[in-house]
Lab assay of single mutants.
Amino acid sequence: DIIVVALYDYEAIHHEDLSFQKGDQMVVLEESGEWWKARSLATRKEGYIPSNYVARVDS
């Protein structure tokens, strides 16, 4: 799995977006363009995230 960590807070604009806080970790489910589908490890919610707001966690 690709794990990313939030670099900034993000408040969902559309209902399919995923809100998150700086430091939150998410599993990337699908990478396509600038918006990635991800699942929050904390809340288990899924939605689209702006890929420029996150960084990959080296395992």
Rank of each mutant, 00 (worst) to 15 (best):
residue 17 D to P: 02
residue 11 E to F: 11
residue 44 R to E: 12
residue 21 Q to V: 11
residue 31 E to Q: 15
residue 21 Q to L: 12
residue 26 M to L: 13
residue 51 S to Q: 09
residue 13 I to M: 11
residue 20 F to I: 03
residue 13 I to N: 09
residue 48 Y to L: 10
residue 39 R to W: 09
residue 24 D to F: 02
residue 56 R to E: 06
residue 28 V to Y: 02
residue 59 S to R: 10
residue 48 Y to S: 05
residue 8 Y to S: 06
residue 1 D to F: 14
residue 3 I to N: 04
residue 43 T to V: 03
residue 37 K to M: 14
residue 35 W to F: 10
residue 21 Q to G: 07
residue 56 R to L: 11
residue 51 S to E: 04
residue 3 I to C: 07
residue 24 D to V: 04
residue 48 Y to E: 02
residue 17 D to E: 15
residue 33 G to P: 05
residue 21 Q to E: 09
residue 54 V to N: 00
residue 57 V to R: 07
residue 39 R to P: 00
residue 35 W to E: 03
residue 33 G to N: 06
residue 10 Y to R: 06
residue 9 D to I: 04
residue 30 E to M: 10
residue 37 K to T: 05
residue 1 D to M: 14
residue 28 V to R: 01
residue 54 V to E: 01
residue 23 G to F: 05
residue 2 I to A: 08
residue 9 D to F: 04
residue 16 E to K: 10
residue 27 V to L: 14
residue 59 S to N: 13
residue 45 K to N: 09
residue 8 Y to E: 07
residue 8 Y to A: 09
residue 41 L to T: 07
residue 15 H to Q: 14
residue 53 Y to M: 12
residue 47 G to N: 00
residue 45 K to P: 00
residue 35 W to A: 05
residue 40 S to Q: 10
residue 44 R to W: 14
residue 55 A to P: 01
residue 59 S to F: 12
residue 6 A to H: 01
residue 29 L to W: 06
residue 58 D to G: 12
residue 10 Y to T: 01
residue 16 E to S: 12
residue 4 V to M: 05
residue 41 L to G: 03
residue 45 K to T: 07
residue 30 E to G: 08
residue 36 W to S: 06
residue 19 S to E: 06
residue 59 S to W: 12
residue 1 D to I: 14
residue 17 D to H: 15
residue 49 I to W: 01
residue 18 L to Q: 01
residue 12 A to S: 09
residue 26 M to V: 02
residue 42 A to T: 12
residue 41 L to P: 04
residue 19 S to Q: 06
residue 42 A to K: 14
residue 22 K to E: 07
residue 30 E to Y: 10
residue 42 A to L: 12
residue 3 I to F: 08
residue 11 E to R: 11
residue 13 I to D: 08
residue 26 M to N: 00
residue 52 N to G: 12
residue 32 S to N: 13
residue 47 G to L: 01
residue 43 T to N: 09
residue 2 I to Q: 10
residue 19 S to A: 09
residue 54 V to F: 13
residue 55 A to M: 14
residue 17 D to Y: 14
residue 5 V to N: 03
residue 34 E to G: 10
residue 42 A to Q: 10
residue 51 S to C: 12
residue 4 V to K: 01
residue 40 S to L: 15
residue 48 Y to A: 04
residue 18 L to G: 01
residue 4 V to W: 14
residue 37 K to E: 03
